[in-house]
Write a protein that binds this DNA or RNA. Structure first.
Length: 417
RNA sequence: GCGGAGUUGGUGAAGUGGUUAACACGGUAGAUUGUGGCUCUAUUAUGCGUGGGUUCGACUCCCACACUUCGCCCCA
C-alpha cells in the first residue's frame, strides 16, 4: 500500500467541512474589509526566501523543501506567504501609480520540512493579509483587529493577542546591544540553546521556555525602554486604538517573532490553554525595498488554518455533523429508475438538495439511507402511481404520505421545504 | 535534526508463541412491524503498519523501515 508522505494529510469529513466554512467566512470578511484575493505560486526561487525570511533563520536553513528542477534551478516550496506576495507586488508593479493603501489576502498551502506534531504538519494552510503603502498606525490597528475579528467570528473565543514593538532598526539595534551586554556575564548559566542563540539571534532568548523563570531573564532589559520617540508614539497609539475598538490584547515585551524582516509592531494570536499560536504578524517596512521594489511600508499577518480547525473541532466534540438533504428518491425497477433520474435532475436544477438511490438497495435499506441523510421528503416511486402520472411523497417528519401530480412535484417541494 | 510512546476490521477496541482473532457499534441479507427507524436471526479481518529474521509454528520474540503521537529545536 502506498501511504502518504510524512506530515501530509488528507482533508476529510469534518475537517473538510470546517475548512470550507472557514474559507467562506474569510471570503466574506475580506470583501467587507476591501481586500483583494491573490494567489502566488506554491514554489519560488530559493533565493527569494533566503532574502526575505532571513539567511540565518532555521525556517530557511533547515526547514524548507528545496530541490533542483530539471533546468538546474534551485526551487523552494514556500514556507510562508509574505515573500511571494511581496515578490508579486514588485514584479507586477502592483503599487502602480496611485497613493492608495494596497490590500491583499491569500489562502493556501505552505510547506515546512520539520518533525510533525499535533497542529504542526509539513503541509499547512495559512490565511494571511498583506497591506502595503501605509505607514500609519491606522493600518496596524486595522490588520491586528481584522485577524482577531475573523477568529472570533469563526467561533474561537479562547485566544489572546500578544503584542509588542521592536521599534525601528535603530531602536532594535540599540536594544540588541544592551541585551547582549546584560547577558554576556551570565551566558554560561543559560541553557545550551540560549547560548547558541546569543550570537545567532539574541532576541529569541527572550522566548526561551527553559530559562523563562530564571532570575537572569526576569530582570532582562525591556525593549520598550529602548524605543525612540517615534516608535513609542506609534506603539502607544496602536494599543490605545485597539482598546477603543474593544479588542483585548496583552503587552508582551518578550515577543520577538522569528523572521528577520519584522520591525515596529509584532503580535501573535495565542490560544489561552496551551499557548499554541493560531497566527502572528508584524510590520515589515524594509522588506519591499530590500527585494528591489520601491521604499514601501508594509504590514501583515498569517493565521494557521489547520490550527483553527483543531480549535473548532474541540468545540464540536460530541456533536455530530449531520447531513440534511431535502429529498431522497427511492426506486427499484427500471421504469422507476428512469423517473428517478429525471426527477432528481429537475429538483437539483431548482436548488433542492436531492439524493437518489443509485446502488440497487433493498426497499428497507433505501429508507435507512434516507434517514441517515435526514431527508425532509422521501419520494417513493412505484410503477402503479407512475402509470397514473402520480408521485408518492412522504414527509419524513410527519410520516404523512401524499400523491402529487408528476408535473407539479418540483413546485410542490419548493413550496414545502 | 535529537529523544520518548504507539500502529489489530468501516469504527471503538480485547487478545495469546500453536487449529475457527473476543466483545460492541456500524454494514449487508432475512423475519416481524401496511413502507424503514424497535426486536429477532444470519453474515461481516485467510487478517493483526510494511519488509526481513528467530522458531516445527508468530498477530504475539528480534531487527530495519514507514506512518502517527508527545517533548526539544523552530514556527502558524
Amino acid at each position: 500500500m502506498i501511504t502518504k508522505p510524512k506530515g501530509m494529510y488528507d482533508l476529510l469529513d469534518i475537517d473538510a467541512k470546517l475548512y470550507q466554512y472557514i474559507q467562506n467566512t474569510i471570503t466574506t470578511y475580506m470583501e467587507n474589509y476591501n481586500y483583494d484575493f491573490i494567489r502566488t505560486p506554491i514554489m519560488e526561487s530559493s533565493e527569494l526566501f533566503h532574502r526575505t525570511v532571513g539567511e540565518e533563520t532555521d525556517l530557511v536553513t533547515k526547514e524548507t523543501y528545496d530541490f533542483v528542477d530539471r533546468g538546474n534551478r534551485n526551487m523552494t516550496l514556500r514556507p510562508e506567504g509574505t515573500a511571494g506576495v511581496v515578490r508579486s507586488l514588485i514584479e507586477n508593479k502592483l503599487y502602480g501609480n496611485h497613493n492608495e493603501t494596497i490590500k491583499y489576502y491569500y489562502l493556501g498551502t505552505m510547506y515546512r520540512y520539520e518533525r510533525p506534531q499535533l497542529g504542526r504538519n509539513r503541509e499547512l494552510t495559512q490565511f494571511g493579509v498583506e497591506v502595503f503603502n501605509s505607514d500609519d498606525f491606522m493600518s496596524d490597528v486595522e490588520v491586528i483587529s481584522l485577524g482577531a475579528n475573523v477568529l472570533k467570528d469563526l467561533g474561537i473565543e479562547n485566544f489572546t493577542i500578544h503584542i509588542n514593538s521592536l521599534g525601528d532598526k535603530e531602536s532594535r539595534d540599540n536594544y540588541t546591544k544592551a541585551l547582549k551586554n546584560y547577558l554576556k556575564p551570565n551566558i554560561d548559566k543559560l541553557c545550551p540553546d540560549c547560548q547558541a542563540r546569543f550570537n545567532k539571534n539574541p532576541l529569541r532568548i527572550l522566548d526561551c521556555k527553559v530559562d523563562k523563570n530564571s532570575d537572569i531573564l526576569k530582570n532582562v532589559p525591556k525593549i520598550n525602554d529602548y524605543l525612540n520617540e517615534e516608535s513609542k508614539f506609534r506603539f502607544n497609539k496602536i494599543t490605545e486604538m485597539l482598546t477603543m475598538l474593544d479588542i483585548d490584547y496583552e503587552l508582551d515585551f518578550n515577543l520577538v517573532r522569528g523572521l528577520d524582516y519584522y520591525d515596529y509592531t509584532v503580535w501573535e494570536y495565542l490560544t489561552d490553554e496551551e499557548g499554541l499560536a493560531l497566527g502572528g504578524g508584524g510590520r515589515y517596512n524594509g522588506l519591499v525595498k530590500s527585494l528591489g521594489g520601491p521604499d514601501m511600508p508594509a504590514i501583515g499577518f498569517g493565521i494557521g488554518i489547520d490550527r483553527v480547525i483543531l480549535e473548532l473541532k474541540k468545540k464540536l466534540e460530541g456533536h455530530e455533523l449531520k447531513k440534511n438533504i431535502d429529498a431522497y428518491i427511492m426506486c427499484v425497477n427500471e421504469e422507476e429508475k428512469i423517473h428517478a433520474l429525471k426527477i432528481a435532475q429537475d429538483l437539483r436544477l431548482n436548488n433542492i438538495m436531492t439524493e437518489v438511490n443509485s446502488n440497487n438497495l433493498s426497499f428497507k435499506s433505501q429508507f435507512k439511507v434516507a434517514d441517515n441523510l435526514n431527508a425532509k421528503f422521501i419520494i417513493i416511486l412505484n410503477s402503479e402511481d407512475l402509470a397514473k402520472g402520480l408521485i408518492n411523497v412522504k414527509d419524513n417528519a410527519t410520516k404523512e404520505e401524499m400523491k402529487i401530480d408528476e408535473n407539479e412535484l418540483t413546485d410542490w417541494i419548493m413550496g414545502n421545504i
